[in-house]
């Protein structure tokens, strides 16, 4: 049997959508539909389940209000959106710290539906607790770089664009973050 594949019509790139939204604001909802789920998940990982929708709300409203400032040369809006989300999350640093602390104590992330991985639960915890402890100790800027890279899956260049910093700074922050994590893991495993 042959599956019939109907190619999806080519979707407008983000810049085109944003440009259209300048005269037809409702078009911005399409950008929301593209990226809000991922931004939500990113926020929940960092802040816990209660914060997800608020972060998404604030991020997309800020993006919408500033869309006239979007650099239309950039076809992919993710770095821009994650940059705004990073600012929004940054204002809730206390929640983030509380979440990581609670995890270090309890070993439970309140939004995780399962282990998510095939590793044995105990093994996972043995690694994840020190990881959470390391995240706690990172400087805010280093943590942003690390998590945009690891969780939002932005490239170095995209992370740089998101945070408005040079790519070299992304590399050095990432190196520093990794070093701290390595130290934390070695301490725990001894």
């Amino acid at each position: 049997m042959t599956a019939v594949c109907v190619p999806a019509p080519p979707a407008a790139d983000d810049a085109t959508l944003i440009r259209r939204s300048l005269t037809e604001p409702e078009v911005f909802a399409e950008l929301f539909d593209r990226y809000a789920p991922a931004v939500h998940r990113y926020a929940v990982r960092r802040l816990g389940p209660d914060a997800g929708e608020d972060v998404v709300s604030e991020t997309f409203l800020a993006a919408f209000q500033h869309r006239h400032r979007y650099d239309l040369e950039r076809a992919d809006a993710r770095p821009w959106l994650y940059g705004i989300a990073s600012n929004v999350i940054g204002k809730r640093r206390r929640d983030e710290v509380s979440l990581y602390r609670a995890y270090v104590r309890s070993g439970v992330h309140p939004a995780e539906v399962s282990g998510g991985l095939v590793e044995h639960q105990a093994d996972t915890l043995a690694v994840n607790r020190p990881l959470a402890a390391a995240l706690l100790r990172l400087r805010a800027g280093d943590r942003d770089v690390l998590l945009l890279t690891a969780w939002a899956e932005l490239s170095y260049e995209e992370t740089a664009a998101a945070l408005g910093i040079p790519v070299g700074t992304v590399r050095s922050r990432l190196n520093r973050a990794r070093k701290k994590i390595r130290e934390e893991l070695e301490d725990r495993h001894g």
Partner: peptide, 24 residues
Amino acid sequence: ELERVRRLWSGVPEPGEDALSRAR
């Protein structure tokens, strides 16, 4: 380390439509 961080809390799911309806 980076791969370990990637896997950290990767069981957090993407939200359902309901979770985003208010924001949308």
